[in-house]
């Protein structure tokens, strides 16, 4: 119970940390990392729930759910990075400054392309 709470509680803290970072930070890469940290937090909770005390085999179902969740998170991250790359490429091709509209409520969720990704050239 204590071990499960410490581990799962850490997961909840990671979730909250990721949520805060996602809402507050502007650059896309930070938002994406924040989302992955949120995901890791939720996976922690699942793993903690699988724990059934020392010496007892853990519940395999949450373990399998987490494996599925990881692959889904990797896929989403890959697609987001590719979209971001495309935006960057456009920006460098047209050498035009970015003016993504950030109007609307919760503008913290808008994205501003950054040029801090590894260049391939």
């Amino acid at each position: 119970m204590t071990a499960a709470f410490l581990y799962g509680g850490a997961g909840i803290l990671l979730f909250a940390l990721g949520l805060w970072s996602l809402l507050v930070h502007e650059p896309l890469l930070r938002k994406l990392i924040a989302l992955n940290i949120m995901g890791a937090g939720v996976f922690h909770v699942f793993i903690a729930v699988a724990h059934r005390g020392d010496g007892t085999p853990p519940d395999p179902v949450p373990h399998a759910l987490v494996l599925t969740g990881i692959v889904v998170a990797v896929s989403a991250t890959a697609l987001a990075l590719a979209l971001h790359n495309r935006l960057e490429q456009d920006a460098s091709d047209s050498a035009q400054s970015t003016s993504t509209s950030t109007a609307g409520l919760l503008s913290g969720l808008s994205i501003s392309p950054q040029s801090d990704i590894i260049r391939h050239e």
């Binding site: 692959v71 889904v72 990797v74 896929s75 989403a76 890959a78 697609l79 590719a82 979209l83 790359n85 495309r86 490429q89």
Partner: peptide, 13 residues
Amino acid sequence: VLLAALLGIWSLG
């Protein structure tokens, strides 16, 4: 889901 991600990446050029 994995396939959808790759197809999306390919559609970008």
